Structures are given as structure tokens and as C-alpha cells.
Amino acid sequence: MKVITTLEKFDQGIWGYHFPISQEVTEQMSSENHKRVICQVNGVVTMHSALVPLNDASYIMVNKSNRKKLGINLGESVELILEKDTSEYGLPMPESLMVLLDQDEVGSKYFHELTPGKQRSLIYLVSKVKSIDKQINKGLAILEHLRDVQGRLDGKLLNEKIKHYNQNRNHI
């Protein structure tokens, strides 16, 4: 579905830049249980995103990195191509993390018991690293953390575990 919208910014709160999505498009692209879309912006950037509800319509968040790649400023018009995201996690799963989950039954169990949003956060942590070795290292740290805390994700402890793995690079 092709949509023309503009880059806007909320005046308050921690979330800022976004693309408003009309009520009509929101109704066509989402349901009560499914609000994830793949959003291609100006044919340049593809993002796996949520249609975040706002009154009867919605919006799609856009981060600084993607705004920079797009070279767009506040109030500028953009063309979005939206399709429903039917992927299992709402983000592409890095092969390195999938292999680790396949090999670690307990870690995989804890990972799959997390909410979809927490799963996406962990997938993003791994996928934002370009080096496969670093992805594996980060994935190992995440799975060890989940085992250590019996699946009760703790961001501070996870960051410490990742830092430990980064300092002792001989895990892989």
C-alpha cells in the first residue's frame, strides 16, 4: 500500500520523529492482534515497524539514523510503501542468533517465553552488530543471561553480561 505522509515530531516525551498514518490506512494495515508493518521510505530505507495507535489513526516512529539516510527534515513529504509484517518476530532474525537458539534448549525456552517486544529488543541488539563473530558473542551473552535469571530479563544485568563477553572475546 502506497502512502504519502510527512515527517513530524511530538513536542514532548521521549519519542519524537514519526510518520502519521491515517485512520483508513491504519484500519487496512492492522488488526487488534497485528500492528506490525514493513515500511519502505522513499525507496531508500526499509524498516520493520509498529503502527502505534494514536486516537483512531496511528504513526510510525523513525530514528535519527534512518532520517539521516533519507536526508529528510521536519515537515517534508515522504512516500511509504507499507506491507503487513507476517514474520515470526516482527524483525529479521539474524542467522547467528537462530543457530544459537537451536543449540541452546533452555536459553531458547526462556527467549520464546518473553513478550514479542522483548524478543524484538534482543533480536535488534544482535542484528545491529555487523560482524558475525560479534553477533555470536552478543547472542551467547544474551542466552547465558536468560539462563542465569530464569528468563526474567534484567537490562542492567544483561548489559554487564554483554560487557563481560566483550572483554573476554574467547567465548566463540
Rank of each mutant, 00 (worst) to 15 (best):
L54P: 02
T86M: 13
R67V: 04
L70N: 12
M61W: 07
A57C: 08
L51I: 02
Q40E: 10
N63R: 15
D56H: 15
T86P: 02
K84A: 09
N42H: 05
R67A: 07
K84M: 11
V52C: 05
I81H: 11
S49R: 05
M61A: 12
N55T: 12
R36Y: 08
V78Y: 11
R36A: 10
S49E: 03
T86V: 10
L51V: 04
S77A: 05
I60C: 01
C39A: 04
V41E: 03
A50C: 02
L51H: 05
N73A: 03
I81G: 06
L70T: 11
V62L: 06
G71W: 06
E76V: 06
Y59C: 03
N73L: 08
E83Q: 14
G71V: 01
P53K: 12
N63I: 10
K64W: 09
T46C: 00
L80I: 05
V37P: 00
I60N: 02
V52Y: 07
V41P: 04
P53Q: 07
L70K: 10
L51D: 03
K68S: 15
N63W: 15
N63A: 14
L80M: 09
G43W: 00
V37Q: 02
V62K: 01
T86E: 15
L82V: 04
V78Q: 11
L80H: 08
R36H: 12
D56L: 15
G71S: 07
N66C: 06
N66A: 15
K69M: 12
L51R: 10
L74F: 14
G75E: 08
H48Q: 06
R67D: 02
G75F: 12
V41D: 02
L82K: 10
E79S: 11
I38D: 09
V78A: 11
E79V: 03
V41T: 01
N66D: 13
V45P: 01
S49G: 02
D85P: 08
L70C: 05
E79L: 03
I60W: 03
S87E: 05
T86I: 07
I81R: 13
N42M: 03
K64L: 13
G43D: 02
L80F: 10
K84N: 04
R67E: 09
E83D: 08
A50F: 06
Y59S: 01
M47Q: 14
V45H: 05
E76Q: 15
I60S: 01
S65H: 11
L54A: 00
N73P: 01
S58N: 08
K68N: 14
V52A: 09
D56I: 14
G71R: 05
I72Y: 04
